[in-house]
Amino acid sequence: MSEKKQFVAQGRLIDEMSLKNRLVELFTKWEVILSFLFVVVFIFFTNMSPYFLDWFNLMNATFQFSEKAILALPMIFIIMCGDIDISIASIIALCAYVIGISAEAGASIPTLIVLSLLVGSAAGLVNGLLITGLNMPAIAVTLATQNIYRGIATGMLGEHACTKYPQGFGFFGQEFIPGTIIPFAFVLYLALMLVFFFVLHKTAYGRRLYAIGNSAETARFSGINVRRTRIINYTLTGFFCGISAVLLASRILSVRSNIATGWDLEVITLVVLGGVSISGGRGTVFGVFISSLLVGYLKFGMGLLKFSGTVMTIVIGSLLIIAVLLPRLLDIYKANRKLKIQQGGL
């Protein structure tokens, strides 16, 4: 009976929520804060540089961040389950190495793409099997494979740079959709983003990810194959590293062993800044979409204002820390507020 009473009390609580309370609720939502920040960044850079708010420039800027934004999508799944993968930059290096030497050996464009996707998926699968097979910590395993994958590329390539590619390979990373000013890579990203939105928010698989992130143990007891899901997540991430490697190799048309270094940090930053909880179980694809655009245009704008890459690294690192710290503070604020409302203070 007391339970019923509480339920009624809560119903009344929602009814009695004033407009002010509802507004506070809305504006302390992470996605709303991010969108607001995004607008601020746009207004700021438009005022600072005459070259910022220009359709052609804005579209051109997507070349710089589409590859990383694509990687952030499967990383949502991994972090959602409370896992982490810091080997993605090395998987890209491995895929790019395979693309580079195969192209030098005279492989066709479809062969290059298939090889890259296969190698990436295999590397991701190995990660997943190692982590779930012996139940080893994800951070330690991917730190090791980070060196193994990058090590293969470094060992095989040495100081060599692969610069010979078939005619037309540059399309994926350099060209626009014919007749428009929209880059192919950005359209690919948007399409993949919609797919991920659908999978995470509208399918059973997506709901399972939330369940695992909240409590892997509970999820296992409710019949979810946690081990298989985690392996799928890692393989998917490897597959997407393969896609990203094709775009990157096609964009810069030169593969060295140090390709894509530091991308682990940037991609994880995008996901965490997008509101995916690092301890798992919370986050949306929309949030990560906004954070990808936010970081992408922040870097573009800073580049226009002639900030060095160093300053940008510092900004990205700080963003990562702030992105984790701020929601914690917001949670505390919300909890205090709720307490006050329940006590009838507001």
Partner: peptide, 12 residues
């Protein structure tokens, strides 16, 4: 050049 690889393998 294989140093990174070997170290990763040892750790694993």
């Amino acid at each position: 050049f294989w140093q990174t690889f070997v170290q990763g393998l040892i750790v694993l």
